[in-house]
């Protein structure tokens, strides 16, 4: 079965989706302050990488990249509530593109799977033992 990335139409569709997604983030006071307006193009490129990954498109991001890429934001207070907002906007963006609820839940699960990496803490299974 083709990935959701392919079903949506590949790169051009994801490029359009990233604009919708990033616009939602920039206008949401809960997370807008994490985005530095000076490097908008760079941030959009990163969001595109993220969306491509969670949609099952070609991606080489690793947990290590996710940790390194968000460390400075964790230092500024990035926590679970912000990851929840990201997943909320991700779902709303996909819904606007006509993606069904079941597929959105799958994508949210993939996004959730990198939560511990993004927040730079031990993987949840390890944390549960403590």
């Amino acid at each position: 079965m083709p990935s959701l990335y392919e079903q949506l139409g590949g790169e051009p569709a994801v490029a359009a989706a990233v604009d919708v997604f990033y616009r939602k983030m920039l206008t949401d006071d809960r997370v807008a302050h994490f985005f530095d307006a000076v490097d908008m193009d760079g941030q959009i490129a990163k969001q595109k990488g993220f969306l491509t990954m969670v949609l099952g498109g070609p991606s080489n991001y690793t947990g290590k990249d996710m940790r390194a890429g968000h460390k400075h934001l964790v230092a500024r207070g990035l926590n679970d509530s912000h990851v929840d907002v990201v997943i909320e906007h991700l779902g709303a963006t996909l819904a606007e593109l006509g993606v069904g609820a079941a597929a959105i839940a799958q994508v949210a699960a993939i996004a959730n799977s990198v939560r511990d990496d993004v927040l730079d803490r031990p993987a949840r299974t390890a944390a549960a033992k403590n």
């Binding site: 790169e11 490029a15 193009d41 990163k46 595109k48 990488g49 070609p58 080489n60 991001y61």
Partner: peptide, 25 residues
């Protein structure tokens, strides 16, 4: 990312043809 998204590997053609598909996005 090595997958055409992050644009970290951006470069400029000085001489020769721009490779097909390398400007997508």
């Amino acid at each position: 990312c090595r997958a055409g998204h992050c644009q970290t590997c951006l470069a400029r053609v000085v001489r020769g043809d721009v490779p097909v598909g390398s400007q997508e996005g």
